[in-house]
Amino acid sequence: MHGVHQLFNGVKKIMSNVIQVLFNSLRLGSIVALATLGIVLIFRTSRATNFAQGTIGTFNAFIAAYFSIRVGLSVWTSMLIALVTAFIMGVVIDKLFIRPAAKANPVSKQILTLGIILILVGIMNSSIGFLNTVFPSVTVRPQPFFTTEMQILGARVGHNTLFIFGLTIFLMAVIFFVIQKTRWGLATRATASNEPIARLMGVPTKTITMFSWAIAAMLAAIAGISLAPGPGIDVNLLLGVQISAFFAAVFGGFSTFFGPVVAAYLLGFAISLGAFVFSTMGGSAVFAEILVYTLVLVILYFKPFGLFGKPPVRKV
């Protein structure tokens, strides 16, 4: 009787630990999901692999932090301002860099986004008075949206995490609804599947691509602002997220919009869980990442277009 009770308690403890890990991974998973959706959106509509997604997010997270810390506006107003600047930034990047290079090969477009990274990083690193106040060289740590927390199934969960998760799910739902059910979504899907044909059919592909960049930049900004209170903002804030987002995009399958999002949460949970297991066994948490990514690579060998992806149609 006593043994059963002990076992039950043990299981309960493990369960609550796993639930704790699950909730912990929700925040980062959401952030990666936001970033990856932006990358997929841009890749599908303008055939560019956007390496600058993370840097764009970091840039706008700085702006939000500037308005909330320096100017003293509320967290919410600051986020709205940053979303507006992100929108403008997306439009400018599309107009100035991506559109003129429409005919460049995919690798050149990748390098183009590297150029964007360098320009943004250069602005963030510059020591000129005004820029230095918006982008200080020391790490800034803005307030999270919420500081309170609650108990769910024996696990402690911050309201901040729940808010970010909720916001992500809400945004995903809106974006998926728009993509699947509206005229704009149809135009986006048409542009994604075959840009020249869509253009000939009268789809305003230029506007679609422009909005894709703008929305992707806004998603990146939300990702950056959500992450910022934890590690604090420096130039490399979203570097890790950027790479995880790529992995999620490929693991979930670039050819779908929801696959990468699911993969982002899946990878986040798997790595957190692995890290938890390794650290309870006294190992290094790094092994979890190595193990999970190696596993993903093996899966990709057998499903090269991702868990949910379909191979591109090709004529023989």
């Binding site: 860099f97 003129p100 290079a101 460049a104 050149s108 390098i111 183009l112 590297l114 150029g115 964007i116 990274i117 360098l118 320009i119 943004l120 990083v121 250069g122 602005i123 690193n125 510059s126 020591s127 000129i128």
Partner: peptide, 17 residues
């Protein structure tokens, strides 16, 4: 000073375009 990244970035963009 501090603008070297920006100029490299611009250089990359200009060469590709």
């Amino acid at each position: 000073s501090g603008f070297d990244d920006i100029l490299t970035g611009l250089l990359i963009v200009l060469v590709i375009l």
